[in-house]
Computed example of a mutant assay.
Amino acid sequence: MRNGVIAEVEPLPEYRACGEELPFVGPGLVDLHINGYAGMDVNEEQPQTETLKRMSRAVWKEGVTAFCPTIVTNSDVQYRLMLQNITQACREDPAANAAMPGIHVEGPFISPEDGARGAHPLQHVTAPDWTMFQRWQEAAEGRIKLITLSPEWPESLSFIERCVKSGVIVSIGHTSASPRQIADAIAAGATLSTHLGNGAHLTLPRHPNYIWEQLSSDSLHACVIADGFHVPASFLNVARKTKREKLILVSDAVKYSGMEPGEYDNPLIGEVVLTSEGRLHLKRNAQLLAGSAQMLPHCIAHMVKHRICGLAEAWESASVVPSGLMGWSASQGLSAGAPADLVLFRWDGERLDIEATFKNGINVFTRK
């Protein structure tokens, strides 16, 4: 590695050195959907710049070298506060700026229906509004790179077209859209599905329904939360077979990831419960998940343990594939000239352990 990039790649002739098996090396993990981690929350009621600075470093221990801080449905005023907070953190701190190359706005232009809306508060759900979005983008100084919306609103198509023209990736999620509305959204430029299989009604028609429509589209990449709780292994297997190189693993991690099991009060969505198994749900309705308490290494391990795909493919779905969708240079993976965002890790067939993380060629985390 030289000057922050990979200078050359040379395979070792031996797999062992000094009698000790060497760890794997992979591209840095890229998570398009992180709401929080280890008690830190992107969606704080009173946004704190220091939270973002700490979080951008804390995720290094998970092998994450780039992520989209994700803000969820809230008021227009609160959105601008949160966006200004992220932007200020990136402006003041080079490490935060390098770790957060784009912001993900999830809502409020989503379905108002129960189930499809998920844990997003109904009072702030609204139709797509380009003037409002421009205010947000101004507060973010152009850092919004991804937006999740539902194409069921009459205003959706023109909004999608404007987003795409401005360089923002549009993702379909938290939707109750019809097949026609989904097809029109794809034609207008939508290229992604947000946590496909989640943010959905508990009961759907066998067919047609909006999950089948997105699964069958060759134009859409698909994000999935492979934590073992959000969707079953059978769904992940189908998603992998239909999407192949367009499958993306995301964590959808919230502030309770990395914390002890128990009940916690969330000022935005109410009380949540983190079980000893690692499942996070709303206390008022255990059937409704409240985000994930697992990070990408766990999701990769889950994919491999259930034989949905091999280790290399699962890792790429959490690194070079999301980078490629976003147009980031990390999509070059382990090749000369690519950013030296690297992770050393061990895999024992059950558990994936991060040993070291490098960001721009600098060792930023080493497990002791």
Rank of each mutant, 00 (worst) to 15 (best):
N3E: 15
E8D: 14
R16N: 11
F24C: 09
F24Q: 03
P27Y: 01
V30Q: 03
D31Q: 01
Q46L: 13
Q48R: 15
E50C: 12
T51F: 14
R54M: 13
A66R: 15
D76N: 12
Q78L: 14
Q84S: 15
Q88V: 09
C90V: 10
G102C: 11
I110E: 00
A116H: 12
P121I: 06
T126Y: 05
A127E: 10
A127C: 05
P128T: 02
F133I: 09
Q134D: 08
Q134E: 14
W136I: 08
A140P: 09
I144D: 00
L146M: 13
T148M: 09
P151D: 02
P154H: 04
S156R: 12
L157I: 14
S158C: 09
E161S: 13
S171Q: 09
G173C: 03
H174G: 01
T175L: 00
A187Q: 14
G189Q: 06
N198Y: 09
L204Y: 02
P205H: 13
Y210T: 09
S216A: 14
S217F: 03
S219I: 00
H221V: 06
I225F: 02
V231M: 04
L236C: 09
L236D: 03
N237L: 14
N237Y: 12
L247G: 03
A253P: 07
V254F: 01
Y264V: 01
D265Q: 15
P267T: 01
N285C: 11
C299E: 13
I300T: 11
E313G: 07
A314M: 04
P322C: 04
S323H: 11
S331G: 00
A336E: 05
A336D: 04
D341C: 06
W347Y: 00
G349K: 06
E350V: 07
K359P: 08
N363E: 15
